[in-house]
Nucleic acid binder design. Structure first.
Length: 271
DNA sequence: ACATTGACCTGGGAGC
DNA sequence: TGCTCCCAGGTCAATG
């Protein structure tokens, strides 16, 4: 389920049920995700109080006084809040049970997700230390995008999906933002004008804000903390709409492959 | 330093 | 119905 708006939606859904609660138990049913979940996780956090949960890019960080859990949903991960005695489903790999009787349940069919423990400063962790700025902060600006794209031979879409340049943007929102900005996804990053960068930075912020407001995009398996699906899908302008009419000029939307990911765009509106 | 590709997984849908 | 093939929201690690 996972680009920035979906992770943000998951965060908002789970936070009220678990922050300030003490961890009662950790159940590892299938600890082999992208990397093995540390076996000693129960000993590390049982009895400790969850102080806060924050998002960084597509990662969620669960802070304790003595360290933090880093969680990534991969391609198919999902978090639910359930009462501790609710029957498990297929691919419910981990439960973190809290003293209020609620469990945070991590389901991930494809197992590209991750759950790791970081001592000390979590932002110094290998997975987080190289991340670029959050796209919804002032640091991510037209000027920043201009500087980052100078000298880059990769396509602009590849750059948007590069977490070292900007965090949290994936295949859906890269396509949507490029459409909104009227930029061909295959355009060499270095060839973007200053005006392109301005339009693109604005488009990224606009599409992410709107998606968060709508509660993320549901393709097939994303649901919020209560199992309720997101509703943004109907409003996607280009993603998944290959062969259909461009919402702006009615030209037929085309698919190309960029960096092994399918990319939908309008050949007339996006130059 | 940057760009590209392979690899890791399961499940759903299309086509035969 | 059932099989095979293709595709899917990510991104690290290895290679050029």
């Amino acid at each position: 389920m996972p680009e920035l708006p979906e992770v943000e939606t998951a965060l908002r859904g789970i936070k009220p049920y678990i922050v300030g609660e003490k961890v009662k138990d950790v159940i590892l049913r299938f600890p082999r995700l992208r990397w093995p979940i540390p076996e000693q996780l129960p000993q590390l956090i049982v009895g400790h109080t969850l102080k806060s949960v924050v998002r960084r890019g597509k990662y969620l960080i669960f802070r304790f006084d003595h360290g933090a859990l880093i969680l990534h949903l991969g391609m198919s991960g999902n978090l639910r809040i359930v009462n501790h005695d609710v029957a498990v489903k297929k691919h419910d790999h981990v439960d973190i049970t809290f003293s209020n009787g609620k469990s945070l349940r991590f389901n991930d069919p494809r197992r590209f997700g991750a759950l790791l423990w970081a001592e000390n400063d979590v932002h110094e962790h290998k997975l987080l230390s190289q991340l670029g700025p959050e796209p919804l902060t002032a640091t991510f600006s037209s000027e920043y995008l201009w500087k980052q794209t100078r000298g880059r031979a990769a396509s602009i879409k590849t750059c948007l999906m590069n977490g070292r340049i900007v965090a949290g943007i994936g295949n859906i929102y890269a396509a949507e933002a490029l459409f909104l900005a009227g930029i061909n996804p295959k355009k060499t990053a270095n060839k973007l004008s200053k005006l392109d960068c301005q339009h693109l930075a604005e488009a990224i912020k606009a599409v992410l804000k709107k998606a968060i407001k709508k509660g993320g995009t549901t393709l097939r398996d994303f649901a919020d903390a209560h199992g309720k699906p997101g509703y943004f899908k109907l409003e996607l302008l280009v993603y998944g709409r290959q062969g259909q009419a461009c919402p702006r000029c009615a030209n037929k939307l085309k698919t190309i492959v960029i960096a092994q990911r399918s990319t939908v765009f309008c050949t007339k509106c996006q130059k």
